[in-house]
Amino acid sequence: MHGGEAAGIAFQLGPIPITHAIVVTWGIMVTLACFSWVVTSRLRRDPGSLQTAVEGVVGAIEESISSVLPGHVERVFPFIATIWIFIVLANLIGLMPGIDAPTGDLSVAAALAVLVFLSVHYFGMSIEGFIPYLRHYVAPSPVLLPFHIIGEISRTLTLAVRLFGNMMSLEMAALLVLLVAGFLVPVPLLLLHIVEALIQAYIFGMLALVYLAGAIQTQALRSPSDKG
């Protein structure tokens, strides 16, 4: 299941082929749902260690979003927080023997990048409206429209390729080192995998947040001049 087999089909669900990445994603989803249910069913005003850790993670994400988008935390929090949590788990799950990181699959990385792309426009349009949002692509001059479109496509592409390339290359390198040098030599590489997994998750989520902030704040800045 490693390397070239990561994109392989695990089973067939009727006419729909289910890949290993989807299966692992489902596993992550079930795990997160169960963990969330267990944690939130025991929430107390006087928190235990597990609740403190969960509150710390959620609070840190909220603080990060609040520092970039102070007025829209409640709206974008579920999307950004889910990106961070899912990518961290999806990246780190590749450390488990026999399981490939879903983010090492180009389809999964592209799907996440497209989700970011779509969410940017969704949040931008939901704040200002469809036409006013699209108007910023021709501002300050319609000449810049192709460049805006190229920028949107390229940054979505870079999101997907950056995540996919880093995770796939790390797994590939670890596999190669493991094949060549035995069991103990890849340990530093696996530690690097942990760091890289966290960094890539942070970068992906933060870039998504910045793109969202760019769309929302661009509309917020343009609105007074348009009305004036």
């Binding site: 890949t19 999964v108 497209v114």
Partner: peptide
């Protein structure tokens, strides 16, 4: 390769 089924299901 980009698998559209995986892409859609992942979304």
């Amino acid at each position: 390769e980009l698998d559209w089924t995986t892409f859609g299901l992942e979304i």
